[in-house]
Simulated scan of single mutants.
Amino acid sequence: MYLKVPFVDKNISNLLKILFDEREKVLIVLAALLFSIRIAAQWKPAGNKIKTEWAQKIDPENVLPEYPRPMMERPEWKNLNGLWEYAIRPRGKSFPQKFDGKILVPFAAESSLSGVMAAVGAKNELWYRTAFDVPSDWEDKNILLHFGAVDWKTDIWINDIKVGSHEGGYTPFSFNITPFLGDGEQQLIVKVWDPTDEGPQPRGKQVKEPKGIWYTPVTGIWQTVWLEPVSQKRIAGPQWQNHSYFDGSEFKRTDRSEAIYRKEWQGIMDYLFSHPSIVS
């Protein structure tokens, strides 16, 4: 936008053009600054727990920006970490009509960095809602929605259509969401149930009443969530051959609990295999 003034010296006219250009740049910078301030005002660490230097550097607009799967990195991907809506509701209830506030993904609801720091428990479910856009140059690709880890039982909806479920607090999982995508902005809803020490799943030292050597529960999304475009034919990942470690042993396990343990251990081995520095 330039100011056209008749019968004005050429040098003055050029100066006016520069001033108007600079004004537009200043307005853009101010708008970006105000947006950043608004985002920061929506989130801050909850509680008064001691923070590390890395916690102090958390940027809610750029949370864990590194590619989350170094074992099989692809050049195109989109990080969905950031501020999502959340609600804690009694188990079995339908989709919440109103959410409780904002949660910083991917930090568990009980953590300070989530901005929530609230207990969920076996009698409740944790709901998430966010929206995202798919880049236009991914149009001819299949779109995968990845979760690095969610503790524990997870249900996923895209645009109000259920995509799938997953059980396992340590294992990464993904869904091909291409058939569920529409035009423009897409809505993602996640529901999580985590019974902690009241359920059959591996939980480490997590208990609902932590004390002594026991830890606070870690409910919900606690690893990066991201989108990835892939071709129809693609490398899905390594396949692990499971053996029946419990047959003939003294341990008495149900078929379901045995399957859960195998699945969790596969996830742990996948993680170790993708981070060789841990075991080297």
Rank of each mutant, 00 (worst) to 15 (best):
Y245L: 08
I221R: 01
R203W: 06
A236V: 15
Q232P: 02
T216Q: 15
V207K: 05
I213D: 05
V192F: 07
K191N: 08
Q223G: 09
P179L: 10
V190N: 02
G248F: 08
E228Q: 10
P210M: 07
P210I: 00
Q223A: 14
Q201E: 14
L188D: 04
R234Q: 08
V190W: 04
Q187N: 10
A236I: 15
E250A: 15
L181C: 12
Q206D: 12
E250V: 14
S231C: 00
G212E: 00
S231W: 03
Q206L: 01
I177H: 06
W226R: 00
S231V: 01
W222C: 01
P217G: 10
I177E: 07
G220N: 13
P217T: 04
V225L: 12
I221G: 01
Y170L: 09
Q239E: 08
I221K: 03
D247Q: 11
Y215S: 15
G220E: 06
S231E: 07
D197S: 14
Q206H: 10
P217F: 04
T171F: 06
K208E: 12
K211H: 15
P229Q: 02
Q186S: 08
Q206G: 03
E228P: 04
E228N: 01
G204Y: 06
R253F: 14
K191E: 04
T178C: 07
N242K: 11
K233D: 07
D247H: 09
T219P: 08
P200T: 09
Q201T: 08
Q241F: 06
I213N: 00
D183K: 12
K252E: 15
I221H: 03
G204V: 03
F175H: 10
I213L: 00
P195W: 01
Y215H: 12
L188G: 05
G199P: 07
N242V: 13
V230D: 00
Y215C: 00
L188R: 13
W222E: 06
F251R: 13
W193I: 11
D247F: 04
V225I: 15
L181K: 11
G237Q: 05
G204K: 08
Q186W: 10
P195G: 14
Q206M: 12
P202M: 11
D194R: 05
G237P: 06
Y245H: 09
G184Y: 08
Q223C: 02
Q241R: 05
P200V: 09
G204I: 03
W240K: 10
K252T: 14
K233E: 13
T178Y: 07
P210L: 03
P172N: 04
S231I: 03
P238R: 03
V190G: 07
L181I: 10
S174I: 04
S174H: 10
R234G: 03
G199S: 08
F175C: 07
P172C: 08
D183G: 14
W214I: 02
P172M: 11
G237S: 07
E209C: 08
A236C: 14
W240Q: 11
S244D: 13
E250G: 15
P195R: 13
I213H: 03
D194F: 01
G204F: 06
S244W: 05
K211S: 15
I221W: 07
T224H: 03
Y170P: 02
